[in-house]
Amino acid sequence: MLGFLLILIASAFFTGIIIRTKSIASGRKGPGIFQPIKDVVRLFRKGVVYSQTTSFIFQIAPTIYFSSVVMAMFVVPFGPSKGIVSFDGDFIFFAYILALGKFFNIISAMDTGSSFEGMGASREALYSLFVEPAFFILMGSLALITGHTSFQGMFASLHIGSYLSYALALIGTFVLMMIAMIENSRMPIDDPKTHLELTMVHEVMILDNSGFDLGLILSAGYIKFAVYGALVVNLFIGIFPLQYSIPMFFIIQAVLAIGVGLIESFMARFRMGHNAQFIFALTSVSLLIFFGALLILGKFA
């Protein structure tokens, strides 16, 4: 329950911090960190425009996408305190429930009959296909080290002791953050601020959404970032008492958000054609963690 509340709070400022960092890096003053939330609230108050081509799929898809992200948020624990639901193998549920949201996102883009949105849908389907293995191998490695198969069990018994495990936690952070960037269509993969529809991925898929639906999609994106941020935090806080771990949560989330902002400011996006390979390469980074886990357990002996 604690994790749920913290993620909710973090999601309120995570994207705001990214945007603020970017504007400062480019020498602008920029909007306040709660501007994204204000935008969503404004969208919730607006009417909607539907395309004549669309069907009921287009209307329910944002709802299901948003619900899937909320459900994913329910699963994430906070250190030793469980998520709202927690069971053996809940990370499988986590990944698959997010997949449900993506499925609807993709078909709702196809529903508009727009060539641009179809293009985005095709890319999204391919990228999300390649990002999953990295997540599963990362979680498998954690399960191997800790002997637990639920988020809470893994994170609660993840003792950071040796140098090797520090290295693993750092690589784990890298993998999780990259997954978060891909899932949220951020910089190295996709540029949310691009002005050309041909080069968009996520943004082009939601071209036709408006009003409440667009608000749902945007807020789902904010929550998703905070959810992955929370997973990263969980790699580190382990068994710290709450008075340390809660401030750590916000500090780490803020650091991650600033990091994302800096990456977006100083890095060019990858070539569209090479994105899929790049994403799949993430799996090999996860495999590195897996082999690290084998080293820790002395399986190579």
Binding site: G47, Y50, S51, I64, T112
Partner: peptide, 27 residues
């Protein structure tokens, strides 16, 4: 239940607003 809740919420909110149909946005 979450899906049903969000769906009903959406329905409730949209009741108060204007719903239009138009061509698909072709950029």
């Amino acid at each position: 239940l979450i899906v049903i809740f969000v769906y009903l919420l959406r329905k409730f909110v949209l009741k108060k607003h204007r719903i239009e149909t138009a061509e698909t946005w072709a950029c």
